[in-house]
Simulated scan of single mutants.
Amino acid sequence: MQYKSIEVGRYLVSPMSKPTGDGGYTASVSIRSGQGQASHDRVLRFVPRFESRRAALRYAVREGQDWAQTH
């Protein structure tokens, strides 16, 4: 499941969560820059497991925003 994308400077941050087999969730985030054929998309997948989809998405948003603000 993907949450709404957020613009951070020149980056578009798109948090995502995915259910695990044990009832938890994983978090990841797509960080895109550029447009068209000149676009670049970086996907970060995180190790922590979360009890809810909402917690996973919140974590992905924070991590994506932190990454975009420092690069």
Rank of each mutant, 00 (worst) to 15 (best):
M1G: 14
M1T: 15
M1N: 09
Q2C: 05
Q2I: 13
Q2S: 06
Y3G: 08
Y3W: 10
Y3E: 05
Y3V: 04
K4V: 15
K4W: 09
K4D: 08
K4H: 14
K4Q: 10
K4Y: 06
S5H: 06
S5A: 13
I6M: 11
E7W: 03
V8S: 09
V8E: 03
V8L: 00
V8D: 00
G9Y: 00
G9T: 03
G9N: 02
R10Y: 08
R10Q: 08
R10L: 05
Y11M: 06
Y11E: 03
Y11L: 02
L12Q: 11
L12E: 07
L12W: 01
L12C: 08
V13P: 00
S14N: 13
S14V: 11
S14C: 11
S14Q: 13
S14K: 09
P15F: 14
P15A: 08
P15G: 08
P15Y: 13
M16W: 13
M16V: 12
M16T: 12
S17L: 03
S17A: 15
K18L: 10
K18Y: 08
K18S: 10
K18W: 02
P19L: 02
P19V: 03
T20F: 01
T20M: 00
T20I: 01
G21Q: 04
D22C: 00
D22I: 05
D22H: 11
G23F: 01
G23R: 04
G24W: 00
G24P: 00
Y25T: 08
Y25P: 04
T26Q: 04
T26V: 12
T26C: 01
I31P: 01
R32D: 01
R32F: 04
R32T: 11
R32M: 10
R32L: 06
R32N: 04
G34L: 15
G34M: 07
Q35G: 11
Q35W: 09
Q35T: 15
G36S: 11
G36C: 08
G36H: 13
G36E: 08
G36Y: 08
Q37W: 10
A38L: 11
A38D: 11
A38E: 10
A38V: 07
S39N: 15
S39L: 10
S39W: 02
S39E: 14
S39Y: 03
S39T: 14
H40I: 02
V43A: 01
L44D: 06
L44R: 05
L44H: 12
R45F: 04
R45C: 05
F46E: 00
F46A: 06
V47K: 12
V47R: 08
V47L: 03
P48R: 08
P48N: 05
R49K: 14
R49L: 05
R49N: 00
R49C: 03
R49S: 03
R49E: 02
F50T: 11
E51Y: 12
E51N: 15
S52V: 04
R53W: 00
R54C: 07
A55E: 08
A55K: 06
A56E: 02
A56L: 04
A56D: 00
A56T: 10
A56R: 02
L57T: 03
R58G: 07
R58H: 07
R58L: 12
R58K: 14
Y59R: 05
A60T: 09
V61D: 00
V61I: 13
V61F: 05
R62H: 05
R62N: 13
E63H: 13
G64S: 13
Q65M: 15
Q65F: 02
Q65K: 13
D66C: 09
W67I: 03
W67K: 00
A68I: 14
Q69R: 15
H71F: 06
H71A: 07
H71G: 15
